[in-house]
């Protein structure tokens, strides 16, 4: 069984990589743009997975890192006149620093309280950016226009986003094999036990939160530069947090490829819904969230990797496990 799982996973990964590299040379702007967006959500979901999936701290404010990443680049490039190659890493570092500062007090909270506190931080930041002068408040801020043809821009952002995604996944993979990964999982399973076994829980939790922030911040920078214009309510939208969590859960939290898979499938589903039901597509999206949570709370990664067999009995078993 394990053998079969590894082979399927390897094959799946190989196909993904080939498609990933070849795609922009065979498709039109619309597809490239769509996939870039899906990749961004894959980055966000994977970054959420580090703190929410592996560490077990369900952050409900992860969008704040996207927002900070976007605004760091926007302000530095527009007001400070720095080139993109400075603003881009600065966004990741800025979001990571914010994660550390906020994480110090907030990561002491557990369960629902952590969830609400992070949500509160994200909303407070949105309200703050909405009012600050340097961010041009709620009228939004423009970024410098890129000096490239439209097609090249699309390809540029596609590969940048793909690069950030690969970086996120590889770093997560490497850390999981190290002390950090085992420490995080120990914290998820039983924080007090981990602490008494000598795991520096505070340091581990903050590292995990900062990593999550760093990758989301990079994605935020790319998002802002590609959009060319951002507003607080678009980059601090709590709906984006929901989307990344739903993607991570749908794909399978606590696995490396789960969030990527979840992001791709949910983005494709919502794109199809948007095409068919222009007005009511969000309505159907809500219904999909409900069904996905009720029937596949453990994610579809189990099925893809061949650990579980898909069928009615699998779906019903999930309900049997959790109902009252």
């Amino acid at each position: 069984m394990a053998q079969k799982g590894t082979v399927t996973k390897g094959l799946f990964l190989g196909i993904l990589i080939i498609i990933g590299i070849a795609l922009p040379f065979f498709s039109g702007n619309f597809i490239i743009r769509f996939v870039t967006n899906a990749l961004m959500f894959a980055v966000l979901a994977s970054a959420w997975n580090i703190i929410g999936g592996y560490t077990g701290y369900a952050s409900f404010g992860n969008v704040v890192f996207l927002g900070i990443g976007a605004y760091v680049s926007a302000v530095l490039m527009e007001k400070g006149g720095v080139p993109f190659w400075v603003g881009f890493p600065a966004s990741g570092v800025g979001a990571a620093i914010f994660a550390i500062l906020i994480g110090l007090p907030v990561l002491r909270l557990k369960g629902h309280y952590f969830a609400i506190a992070t949500l509160g931080v994200a909303e407070a930041m949105k309200a703050l950016v909405d009012n600050l002068e340097i961010t041009e408040g709620n009228s939004g801020i423009y970024l410098p226009v890129m000096d490239l043809s439209v097609k090249s821009q699309y390809i540029f952002f596609y590969f940048m986003m793909l690069g950030v995604l690969v970086l996120t996944l590889v770093v997560t993979y490497i850390f999981l094999k190290k002390k950090l990964g085992y420490g995080l999982i120990a914290i998820r399973e039983d924080e007090e036990a981990a602490n008494s076994l000598g795991v520096n829980t505070t340091l581990f939790k903050i590292t995990s939160f900062a990593l999550s922030g760093f990758f989301s911040g990079l994605a935020g920078s790319l998002y802002a530069y590609q959009q060319g214009f951002i507003k607080p309510e678009s980059v601090f939208d709590v709906g984006v947090t929901v989307k990344m969590i739903v993607m991570a859960v749908f794909g399978g939290i606590g696995s490396i490829l789960g969030p990527l898979l979840g992001a791709l499938s949910i983005e494709i589903i919502s794109e199809i819904l948007t095409n068919y039901f222009l007005v009511a597509h969000t309505l159907f999206f809500g219904a999909i969230v409900i069904f996905a949570i009720v029937f596949t709370p453990k994610g579809i990664m189990d099925i893809i990797s061949g650990r579980k067999k898909f069928g009615i009995s699998y779906l019903l078993q999930n309900i049997r496990d959790h109902r009252v």
């Binding site: 929901v242 969230v289 949570i293 709370p297």
Partner: peptide, 18 residues
């Protein structure tokens, strides 16, 4: 889903809200 982990009910509630 009431006995699943906490963010399952959270997201379910989000789905209901949407």
């Amino acid at each position: 889903v009431i006995r699943a982990t906490i963010f399952i009910t959270l997201i379910l509630a989000f789905g209901i809200e949407i």
